[in-house]
C-alpha cells in the first residue's frame, strides 16, 4: 500500500469521527450532544465525498447536519437540557457480546473486496448492467437518478410514502401547530379549548384546580341545606 494524501485524509477523518463519538457518549449537556451529532454528520459527509458517493454525502449534510439537528433541538427544548447519569452495574454479558461481534467483523475484513473493485459482487452484475443500460435507455448523465427514479421507481415510491407516513405520524401525535385536535380540558365540568397547548405550569394548575373547586362545590350545597 503506498502512502497517498487521500489515505492520510481518510485516517484523519475516521479518527475525528471516533473522537466526536466518544465525546457524545461522555457529554452530559444535551445541547452540546445535539451540536456534536451535527458535527459527526458533517464529518461523515466529507468522508462520503472522499469515497466518491456525492449523492449520499449531499443527503447526509442536508438531513443529518441540517434538519435533524434542528429537530433534535426542538425535542430537547420540550424535554430536558441535561442527561442525568444513571448508576448501572457493570455487565459482563453485553460487553462479551460486543467484543465477540467486533472481533468477528475485523476477521471478516480480509474477505471484503478491495475498494472500487469492478469485479466485486456489488459492482459486477446488476450494477454494471444499470451503468451500461442508462446510456442506451434513459440518456441521463447521472446514473444515480436513473436508477433511483426509473429502474428502482417502486423503491423510491415506497420511500416517499415512508416519509409521508413519518410526517403523518408526528402530526397525529403532536398536531401541526403543536395542538393535536386542539387542546381541550374539562376542569370542573367547564370546557376549556385553546389553539395552543398551554405551557407546563398551566397544565399543572389545571390539574390541581379541579380538586380544590370540587371540594368547594361539594361543600357549598351542604351548607345551604343546613341554613
Amino acid at each position: 500500500m503506498h502512502l497517498s494524501p487521500v489515505l492520510f485524509l481518510n485516517i484523519g477523518l475516521m479518527a475525528m469521527l471516533i473522537v466526536v463519538a466518544i465525546a457524545v457518549v461522555r457529554m452530559r449537556s444535551l445541547f452540546a450532544i445535539v451540536m456534536l451529532q451535527g458535527v459527526y454528520s458533517l464529518l461523515s459527509a466529507v468522508w462520503f465525498v472522499s469515497l466518491d458517493a456525492v449523492d449520499v454525502a449531499f443527503t447526509e449534510a442536508a438531513v443529518g447536519a441540517g434538519v435533524s439537528t434542528v429537530l433534535m433541538l426542538g425535542a430537547m427544548l420540550l424535554t430536558d437540557r441535561d442527561v442525568k447519569p444513571i448508576a448501572t452495574k457493570q455487565k459482563l454479558g453485553p460487553l462479551l457480546v460486543v467484543i465477540v461481534t467486533g472481533v468477528a467483523m475485523f476477521y471478516a475484513i480480509g474477505d471484503m473486496p478491495a475498494y472500487g473493485d469492478g469485479m466485486s459482487p456489488a459492482n459486477a452484475y446488476i450494477g454494471a448492467e444499470y451503468i451500461e443500460a442508462t446510456k442506451r435507455e434513459i440518456f441521463l448523465p447521472n446514473v444515480v437518478t436513473a436508477v433511483l427514479a426509473s429502474y428502482r421507481g417502486y423503491d423510491t415510491f415506497g420511500e416517499t410514502v415512508v416519509i409521508f407516513m413519518a410526517g403523518l405520524g408526528v402530526l397525529l401525535l403532536l398536531g401541526l401547530n403543536g395542538n393535536a385536535g386542539q387542546w381541550r380540558a374539562k376542569p370542573n365540568g367547564r370546557n376549556i379549548a385553546k389553539n395552543v397547548t398551554p405551557p407546563r405550569k398551566h397544565i399543572e394548575e389545571a390539574e390541581e384546580k379541579p380538586k380544590v373547586k370540587k371540594t368547594r362545590k361539594a361543600a357549598k350545597p351542604r351548607v345551604r341545606k343546613k341554613s
Binding site: 436513473a146 427514479a149 426509473s150 410526517g167 401541526l176 395552543v196
Partner: peptide
C-alpha cells in the same frame, strides 16, 4: 423517461419538503 423522472422527482420534493416542515412545525409550536 425524462418526463416521468421529472414528475416523480417533483412529487418527492413536495412530500419531503412538507413532511420535514410538518415535523418541525409540530415540535416547534409546542
Amino acid at each position: 423517461q425524462h418526463w416521468g423522472i421529472f414528475s416523480v422527482e417533483l412529487g418527492v420534493l413536495c412530500t419531503v419538503a412538507c413532511a420535514m416542515l410538518a415535523i418541525f412545525y409540530a415540535f416547534g409550536s409546542r
